[in-house]
Simulated scan of single mutants.
Amino acid sequence: MKEPVRYLENAKELLHKSPIEGNRYANEKYVKSACGVAYLGVLKAIEEHLLKKGLTKKELQKKLKNTARHSKNIFQFITANF
């Protein structure tokens, strides 16, 4: 799982580029970029885990589509309620 960890480390580096004002990151650009990179890292980790469990590439694509759909629903819920 080296590649997913690399993605998360890159996300941390992006966050460190943004100054902090109070307890919030001041630059939205870096926060959005870091979130996107971290999300891709999580998807990579899920992909590696499912491949180790014995899923085929075709089954994996279906699982990842479902994962992306669920994460989109969660994001919509969070943005609507917070």
Rank of each mutant, 00 (worst) to 15 (best):
H49F: 15
Q76G: 02
G54I: 05
Q76S: 08
H70M: 09
L51D: 02
Y25Q: 00
P19G: 03
G41L: 01
I74F: 05
I20G: 01
L8W: 14
L14V: 03
T67H: 04
M1S: 15
K32N: 12
Q61D: 12
T67C: 06
Y25F: 03
E3I: 12
A80P: 01
L64F: 10
I74K: 09
I46V: 15
L8T: 12
A68M: 15
E47N: 04
T79A: 07
T67W: 07
E9F: 02
L55V: 02
L8M: 14
E48T: 07
H16G: 04
H16A: 13
H70Q: 13
E59Y: 01
L60C: 01
L15Y: 03
E59R: 03
F75E: 15
I46Y: 08
Y39M: 04
E13Q: 06
K53H: 11
T79S: 05
I20W: 00
I46E: 07
A38V: 11
T79Q: 11
L43R: 05
I20L: 03
K62V: 13
K2Y: 11
K44A: 13
Y7W: 14
A34M: 06
V5H: 10
I20M: 09
K62R: 14
G36Q: 10
L55M: 06
E3N: 12
T67L: 04
K29H: 12
E47S: 07
T56H: 04
Y39N: 02
L60T: 03
K63L: 09
F75H: 11
V37I: 15
F75R: 13
K53E: 15
L51H: 01
I78K: 06
G22Q: 05
E48P: 00
K63I: 05
I78P: 01
V37D: 03
R69Y: 10
Q76D: 13
R6S: 07
N10I: 08
K62L: 12
L64K: 04
Q61R: 12
K72Q: 14
L64Q: 01
N27K: 08
I78F: 10
L64V: 12
I46M: 13
E21W: 04
G36H: 08
K57I: 02
E9V: 12
L60K: 02
E3W: 08
L40W: 07
N27W: 02
P19L: 03
A68Y: 07
H70T: 10
A34N: 06
K29R: 14
G36T: 06
E28C: 00
L64W: 01
K72H: 06
L43D: 00
L51I: 13
E3L: 15
V42A: 14
N66C: 06
K29A: 13
K12D: 08
L60I: 09
L51F: 06
A80W: 09
K2F: 09
K32P: 01
K17H: 11
N10A: 15
E28M: 11
A68P: 00
L55N: 00
A45R: 12
L14C: 06
Q61S: 14
H49D: 14
C35T: 07
I78S: 08
K57L: 04
K52W: 10
K44W: 04
T67R: 03
K29M: 10
Q61N: 10
K12P: 00
Y7R: 10
A11G: 03
L15S: 04
N66Y: 07
A80V: 05
L51R: 09
S18H: 01
F75Q: 05
K44I: 05
H16F: 03
K44G: 02
P19K: 03
N73S: 11
E48Y: 04
P19C: 01
I74C: 00
K62N: 11
